[in-house]
Design a protein around this nucleic acid. Sequence first.
RNA 1: GCCGCCUUAGCUCAGCCGGUAGAGCACCGCAUUCGUAAUGCGGGGGUCGUCAGUUCGAGUCUGACAGGCGGCGCCA
Length: 639
Amino acid sequence: MIDLKFPDGEVRPFENGVTGREVAASISRSLEKKALLVKLDGALMDLARPLETGGAIEIVTRESPEALDVIRHDTAHVLAEAVQELFPGTQVTIGPNVEDGFYYDFARDEPFSLEDLPVIEARMRQIVDRDEPIAREVWDRDEAIAHFEGIGEAYKAQIIRDIPGGEPISVYRQGSWKDLCRGPHLPSTRHVGKAFKLTKLAGAYWRGDQANAQLQRIYGTAWASDADLATYLTRVEEAEKRDHRRIGAAMDLFHIQEEGRGMIFWHAKGWTLYRTLRNYIRRRLEAEGYVEVKTPQLLDRSLWERSGHWQKFHDEMFTCEMKGGEVLALKPMNCPGHVQIFNHGQRSYRELPIRMAEFDSLHRNESSGSLLGVVRVRGMAQDDGHIFCAEEQIEAESKAFIDLLRLTYADLEVELQAVKLALRPDQRFGTDDEWTIAEDTLERAARAAGVEVERVPGEGAFYGPKLEFHLRDAIGRTWQCGTLQLDYVLPERLGAAYVGEDGAKHRPVMLHRAILGSLERFIGVLIEHVAGAFPLWLAPVQVVVATITADADGYAAAAAGALRRAGLRVETDLRNEKVGYKVREHSLTKVPVIAVAGRREAEEGKLALRRLGSGAQEVLTLEEAVLQLAAEATPPDLR
RNA sequence: GCCGCCUUAGCUCAGCCGGUAGAGCACCGCAUUCGUAAUGCGGGGGUCGUCAGUUCGAGUCUGACAGGCGGCGCCA
């Protein structure tokens, strides 16, 4: 006998080997019908699986959040079955869940086309209607390998070979179709339901390695109900509407053209936004004791060799070869340059920490397939900075940085979602001891600043571990922008030193840090976050003074002048158009304030203000409007 | 870089089985001066991504290349 403890606290004895379905049936007929899986001490299991140990039990129904993961995974299995029925000879590989859905990777010589998707979907619905029972079997490893090889499933056989010795090899039977899978699964294909949709096709490498064969990936989304699916699909549409490339064009912020792939042409409005953001972060840094410097764009190859960048990144560096054979490289980052400034002359421990900032442009020859709007580019600038400090200053400096980052994100109305600690990568400089110290120090510093960190193996930079700051945007997507990297290696390689209290030479530690990261990228993220509707202080055009009739032209121009003298970015719209037309146009380009000047306002010296997103009007005297808007448009750090 | 898809006016897109290009918006002009998300009429604008090929004839079919999009990989 085993004891099962139910969520309401009741403990009841059951026969050893009782199944989840029988447990559900013992409670009620309706629960038996609704049951999809059981959870025993937190582990999900098939309903038909005999329970051999007691513990806390829970019957999982379609409404439980855990059920959704299994529904998605089973939808992937139904997809695989449908594909193998429709396209004999296609091999299955893996089909895991991803956010909002799943994918399945197939090996097939002929590519799938978009037109295949509805056909596959139709077959999937048939498989759901067939209500094929899904049953778990445990196979002998060698037999399993032989079976899958026998039916031409080389990838599956490979997966089985790589399963650690002690683990059981479970094969799920779905009607007459079989797939290797850890499970758990739903009782039958009917429970998958029909709230799914195949969404896109893509190439993907076997095991994510470029050296391996390329497989064909089919992506899909699946939900517990049609309503959830519909909600998801509208969310996707919403995200498309926020696309910074679309909004950037509509607002006349920037463009990119063939001759400069990954290089941004910032138009006047976009550059205003860029400068406003940069000025803001510049003030924040100055207030924290940073000094700003400017280092050369082109530097000799030998410096990059000494720093180590040449060895690891020269394929991604833009270089120019001079007549005498001299090779110069366009800087992909500022750190070696900053070390040169640090090294110029004798440094004393009294000067530390030195916080050095730079906003100069950087160039990286990113692979063509990775370029994306202003979010992934070849030419950009960062709110870059390097803190040269003594080892005992690391923790305080790190904490101060994290505090500043939080303040900045609060000002920009973005939410810090997670902090990850990227640990030593395979290809790296420095000793293991140095790495251990660096990783632990960074983690301790983060804790001191009161943030939880999640350790991510292998993701660090070649010279040191990094803290990555991930932010969450208005529609729930996350982006990595800020970073703090601890580096013992570059100061060593580039010979940085200071004279300590003891009169001896010491190695400084370098903290590489950025709050916004690439300004280009951050602006792209910000555009999508606010859907183009920037807070007043950031908006490239803050106010449009729009007339109703030509009688008010003179007054409108004077009013605009008064607003401009108060520091606001103002345009006038004196065109021979109806106000409704003007309101519509400026609303579509996300101008935060439309100040209407009709005959009435002109006579009374007033403005009728209309805020983006609201139809309400607020009539103020010109003086009041100037004061109020100027106050509102003050950047958050100056308020 | 790799896989798939796409490329027609400034933008969004139509163009059937090959017969030599069309809409809406935008732009320009004229009229209208009209109070909060599109005033009316008229006009200009395209060597259909590029280069080859098939054909009497190519926006339409084939190939290569370029660029874009979606993924994968990469991201100091």
